[in-house]
Nucleic acid binder design. Structure first.
Length: 574
RNA sequence: GUCCUUGUAGUUCAAUGGAUAGAACAAGGGACUCCUAAGCCCUAGAUUCAGGUUCGAUUCCUGACAAGGACGCCA
């Protein structure tokens, strides 16, 4: 994986530390876990900097200065390093040769999207589960946030070297589907002129009428006389679910997202996954029959203790045990979730990522413990909570609720902003921030959207190469490290390109794709700055032109790659 | 009452424990005879409060205060 200057340099730093350990200059039991090679904000602090001396000082019982002085000679011996110096409280600032920076630039266009590619998987396969909206209605804006993050995380993990499987969990077996079917049937009866109300707790949205119409077109009056709830559920479940998925899938497609699998919970329950998982947990002593204490949050008048099948979450330090089956024998959501994740594990995935609404965030802890119990290992389950989107319409917050019917549909927003703008806007903000999405701004003033700033940088680069062809500036000299000319502005761009692998690594490890968007925006800024500061195409100075274009080509590769990971297009012109 | 998330510029948001806390919009002021002005340059403007850990805290811990959310066998 030594295809980047950054990775090579970090390897050199770690080797230096190891040799100091071997020579006795550092204690033999010292840990380098907290040592980082970073890219300083301030360019005068070097191309790279490390905190090694400071973080090792205590364990080594030496001053940061003394350790730094020991490390320095090793770093200075590295071929890429021009100078290395101790600064501030014990930073080691490293400047590399322009020639090495430039060599990196030249290699990037050839590497294409292999540049920044890592192998962090450790042999693990990743399953990223996202969107997973209940098939009971259309997608709203908040769900779009889930989709954008899940897809970007999947892209990011692939870049980081994981085999990635993208999955949508269809909750097509639960109580909400029964509610949907009841609502559908009510609408269906209305189409036949019957005075029936949609159930109070049902889905009042108009889309249910459309589905009812389809049902009428398809089956005629077949369901007119049917009154038995269970018979209706059995008969109409799949039809209702499919109709809702038909509303959901186009929006997913519009965003440029494809899933490897739509996982049906109903289908899973036709298999023995759930009993298998429960038996496994029972055999390990984590499942038992017991009663739960009364709920704490609110007064429950009709509370009666009932014996249920429980998961022993308290064995893992949680407050309460969790029911796996309801009193009527149906699995609880938690129970289904155990089975579903057991299924993921059985399919050979070890890194289980789920983009999950913050409202459910409290419930992922028991699941985390259940997976721990199943595997005997920690660290398989990685929930990524995301907050709701607060939508402003005419400056007033709009409440998002499928049940209330006053939702802001994702398809409406996408139609107005476009997929690129929507995705990038969502990605510039970390998922745990309660995001305020101002419709007026997103729609009317989309010229101010940061996505255009980044895409424009890419388009400008493309434009320069078109100009180059028009000017016939094709007989450029081959460059050697001696003939390379870097200016402050082009060097700044190059510095940003060099840290790309680090950005990938940090974003992938933290499952935080918004860092990519932030990085892309910063890189675009450096490109615009450079573009305005200097003219790249200069027929009078072909060596300088060649240098500039080599950096520009590398920049084009990286910004296009970063945009691709975000799921955003990189236009040739705008 | 318990738990989760979040408090950064007038506003919307950034900042792997790191050096002078960055952008954008809004405000004020500039620069094209020149590769795309959806761009560039300059000015002003912020870490809720109090402790603690650390060489170093916006970041980690504790406690206030504030906002949003969850709290039976609902998904």
């Amino acid at each position: 994986m030594g295809n980047s200057l950054y990775q090579n340099l970090r390897a050199g730093l770690m080797a230096a530390l190891e040799s100091l350990k071997a020579s006795g200059a550092l204690p033999s039991d010292i840990s380098f876990a907290n040592v980082v090679l970073e890219t300083p904000r301030d360019a005068t602090h070097g191309d790279f900097a490390t905190n090694a001396a400071m973080v090792l000082a205590k364990a080594a019982a030496q001053s940061p200065q003394a350790i730094a002085q020991n490390i320095l000679p090793h770093l200075q011996k590295l071929p890429q390093v021009k100078t290395a110096e101790v600064a501030g409280p014990g930073f080691i600032n490293i400047f590399v040769h322009d020639a090495d920076l430039f060599a990196q630039a030249q290699s990037i266009p050839q590497l294409k999207n292999a540049y920044g590619k890592l192998d962090l998987s450790g042999g693990q396969k990743a399953l990223v589960e996202y969107v997973s909206i209940n098939p009971t209605g259309p997608i709203h804006v908040g769900h779009g946030r889930n989709a954008v993050f899940g897809d970007a995380i999947a892209n990011l993990l692939e870049k980081a070297g994981y085999p990635v499987y993208r999955e949508y969990l269809m909750n097509d077996a639960g109580g909400q589907i029964r509610v949907l079917v009841r609502s559908l049937h009510a609408r269906y009866l209305q189409l036949f002129g019957q005075q029936v109300e949609v159930p109070a707790d049902g889905y009042p949205g108009e889309y249910v009428i459309d589905i009812a119409q389809k049902l009428k077109d398809l089956d005629g009056d077949k369901w007119l006389k049917v009154t038995d709830d269970e018979e209706l559920f059995q008969g109409l479940r799949k039809f209702a679910v499919d109709a809702c998925m038909d509303m959901i899938k186009p929006d997913i497609k519009t965003m440029g997202i494809t899933f490897d699998n739509y996982f049906s919970e109903w289908d899973m329950h036709q298999t023995s996954r759930m009993p298998e998982a429960v038996k496994l947990l029972r055999d390990k002593g984590y499942v038992f029959e017991g009663t739960l204490p009364p709920p704490k949050g609110k007064e429950v008048k009709d509370y009666r203790p009932v014996e249920l099948t429980l998961f022993k979450a308290t064995a893992f330090g949680l407050e309460e045990d969790q029911p796996i089956y309801k009193r009527n024998g149906e699995p609880t959501y938690f129970g289904q979730d155990i089975a579903y994740h057991y299924d993921k594990l059985q399919r050979g995935y070890q890194l289980l990522v789920t983009v999950i609404g913050a409202a459910q965030a409290g419930s992922f802890r028991p699941l985390e413990k259940a997976i721990e119990a199943l595997t005997g290992e920690k660290g398989h389950y990685h929930p990524v909570p995301y907050e709701l989107v607060k939508v402003l319409r005419d400056g007033q917050p709009v409440k998002l609720s499928k049940r209330a019917g006053n939702i802001v549909l994702l398809s409406d927003v996408l139609a107005e902003t476009g997929a690129d703008a929507f995705r990038f806007t969502m990605l510039t903000v970390k998922p745990t921030t309660l995001l305020t999405f101002d419709l007026a701004k997103a729609v009317a003033k989309n010229m101010e959207n940061p996505v255009f700033y980044v895409q424009y940088a890419h388009a400008r680069l493309c434009s320069v190469f078109r100009q180059q062809a028009e000017l016939g500036l094709t007989d450029l000299p081959g460059l050697t490290p001696q003939t390379v000319t870097l200016t402050p502005a082009s060097r700044a761009v190059l510095q940003m390109l060099v840290q790309y692998p680090l950005v990938i690594e940090l974003a992938a490890k933290a499952l935080e794709p918004h860092r990519l968007a932030t990085y892309a925006h910063q890189l675009a800024g450096a490109i615009h700055h450079w573009y305005a500061a200097e003219k790249w195409l200069n027929p009078e100075d072909k060596a300088a032109t060649a240098s500039a274009l080599a950096v520009a080509q590398a920049a084009q590769t990286v910004i296009a790659d970063a945009l691709a990971l975000c799921g955003v297009s990189a236009p040739q012109s705008m």
